[in-house]
Design a protein around this nucleic acid. Structure first.
Lengths: 169, 169
DNA sequence: GTAATTGCAAACGCTTTGCAGCGCC
DNA sequence: GGCGCTGCAAAGCGTTTGCAATTAC
């Protein structure tokens, strides 16, 4: 998979992270930068466990450290935390704005960029609330599950299984 | 708190639930209807535990049953399941459309109705995806936490604590 | 040197599961 | 009367916490 972040951007984010750490009078541990690097290499969404398993291949860290560091990365707006389903939090690059299409049957998540999306939300103003970021999740059925469920339903209602569609990929 | 659902609407939903249960060849247990009734009496958002504690006051049920029934209620589109934070799922009436303003500091959730919101999303079309419902969560700071954090920050930077604001409610 | 940070392991909290008995159909 | 559903208790799983050892400053 090609990297999701250019070399310059990664350098910039590393520096931003370093400054954030210094500003909070915290320590620049190798673990923290290793986790940042791997986080920037993830595909568009990832969870703590994916990131952890990716890191531990070549670096000895424990999950707790990954949790701590990822929270730091969210604080300084390099990552963003989403709650797409109840199993675990999903993270993505802070700047990468999109809608999430979430299949209620198989759980797959797809990202969709929409021109009007940012425009619409930029103009929203709230009394008594300072928005930081928006997470829009659209739950529904992906085409595969939709077809599968239709097939199952038809098979259940009548017993004409011989008319069943054959449509794989 | 006044009921969120009119008597006629409750009757309608009870009936819809009954039909859904029959159509699936399941049983109409008193637990299921007791849970439906209490769910309709909740304030705009609730989680399983709030619902459970509310029911068990006058009815002997266990949490597992509440989980099962609430899932049924989601299936037949009486309730809707949201993931607003990582602790637990939040439920609300299916028809009640709004944005969620979620404070990242205190976790409070506020509902906002916006005219443009439905219009904007009604016109969205996706290839390969059949949307069922949309959950839009706006993370940020509520006014109370915003003020509190500003105060703390100022108190931390300089030591001029004597200039501190006094602004409670 | 020393206090922040780490790894480890146990604890925590929401949710799910297994099972024996109850009760709807 | 049979089997779906319930209550109960234990297990599961993502996340957090406590603590001794390590290490950045």
């Amino acid at each position: 998979m090609e990297p999701t972040v250019s070399t310059e951007r990664r350098e910039h984010l590393r520096e931003r992270f370093a400054e954030y750490i210094k500003s909070k009078k915290m320590r620049q541990t190798p673990e923290r930068f290793a986790i940042l690097d791997r986080a920037l290499e993830q595909r568009v969404h990832f969870d703590i466990d994916e990131l952890y398993r990716d890191i531990e291949k070549e670096y000895r860290v424990c999950r707790a450290t990954v949790y701590n560091t990822v929270e730091l990365l969210c604080e300084c707006k390099i990552l963003r935390k989403h709650y797409l389903n109840e199993n675990q939090a999903a993270y993505e690059l802070y700047d990468d704005r999109h809608l999430h299409l979430i299949c209620m049957s198989c759980g797959k998540v797809k990202e969709v960029h929409d021109e009007g999306f940012n425009e619409y939300f930029e103009q929203l103003k709230f009394r008594q609330f300072k928005p930081s970021f928006i997470s829009t999740n659209i739950y529904g059925l992906c085409s595969q599950c939709s077809r599968r469920l239709n097939r199952e339903k038809r098979a259940g209602e009548s017993l004409h299984t011989e008319g069943e569609d054959i449509e794989e990929k």
